[in-house]
Amino acid sequence: MPVWLTIVVTVVSVLGAVVTAIATLLLWRVTKVLAVETRRMADASSQPHVVATIEPNRWSMIHADLRVENTGNATAYDIEVEFDPPLQNGESRSEKQLPLQRLSVLKPGHGITSYLTEFEPIIDQKYTVSVTWKRSRDASTREGNSYELDLSALKGISRLGASDPGVQIAEQIKKMREDWQYVASSFKKVKVDIYTSADRLHEQRALERRWRREERQRAGSKPE
């Protein structure tokens, strides 16, 4: 084989190896980028998001409930809730610890509600709410959410009847139970009309007498 041909074959082989190495490096780079983006999209589409709000009580609009809810699509762990200025329990529960300040776990789409106080003392208040959580029990970093909660927006709201059909059903059942207690305790008397066999016999005899009387009247009115 001529020397020049050997040199050409060697150069082509080296260039082929270099091109293969570059292509392999580029493929590795693209694969890594795709893996990172896939993981980022998976994390973005599956993450908890916890909020704390103060809402009207479902039974009485003059009372306020504290509600902590996970509106995301992943479970939140080790949840901490903080209000600034700090929340205060109602007068009847002023000595007790404020509820729902720490929660160990909250599933996606789930929330926990606890009675807080009457609305009147806090209706003009603005709170800065800070909620933090972990994505897993052993996670080293915490995620959070901070926002302003202005309760004055709830001024003047009204409601016609119960807001929850379940509350309406419960109220009607309670009323029925209270009415029945009066009957069961003989506090109220129930008037009942009874239709017995003697009543049916009396009605049948009355119909027979009426029928015979009409027959006599028809017989007396026939022309001779």
Rank of each mutant, 00 (worst) to 15 (best):
G109W: 00
P121L: 05
K191S: 05
S221D: 14
V183G: 06
A35T: 08
L27G: 09
R210T: 15
L26S: 15
S221G: 09
S197R: 06
R209N: 15
I22C: 11
K32M: 05
Y127E: 01
V183W: 03
V9M: 15
G144N: 01
R142Y: 00
M61K: 05
A162Q: 09
E178K: 11
F83G: 00
L5A: 14
P99Y: 06
G16I: 10
T71N: 11
R213F: 08
E203Y: 07
M41F: 11
A35S: 09
N70M: 07
L25H: 12
V12R: 02
M1R: 04
E215P: 06
H63L: 06
V50W: 01
I62Q: 09
G220T: 04
E203I: 00
D179E: 07
S136V: 12
Q47N: 06
V3T: 05
R135K: 10
L151E: 07
V68E: 06
P165R: 04
P48Q: 01
S158K: 09
G166K: 03
F119C: 03
Q47W: 09
D164T: 09
M1T: 03
T10E: 12
Q172K: 02
G109C: 13
A162C: 13
S163Y: 02
R212I: 11
D199T: 03
W28N: 05
T31K: 06
M176V: 06
T6N: 05
V14Y: 06
I122M: 08
V14M: 15
E178Y: 02
E91D: 15
Q181A: 14
D164Y: 01
H110D: 07
T53Y: 01
Y127P: 05
A44K: 00
E171F: 10
H110G: 02
L34R: 14
T10W: 01
G111S: 12
T75D: 02
V192P: 06
M176A: 10
L151H: 00
L116D: 00
I112V: 15
I157D: 11
A21L: 03
Q88A: 04
G166N: 10
V131Y: 04
T141K: 14
W211Q: 13
S130M: 12
R209I: 11
Q97E: 10
L151M: 05
V12C: 12
A42I: 00
S13Q: 04
N70R: 03
R67E: 15
E215H: 12
R200W: 06
I157R: 13
S94L: 01
P108D: 07
R216A: 09
E171T: 04
H63W: 02
V11G: 14
A52H: 01
S13A: 12
G220V: 03
D124K: 13
I194K: 03
I22M: 14
N57H: 11
N57I: 03
Q181M: 15
P56D: 00
K174R: 12
Y182I: 01
T75K: 08
R67N: 12
K134M: 03
V36F: 10
L106R: 05
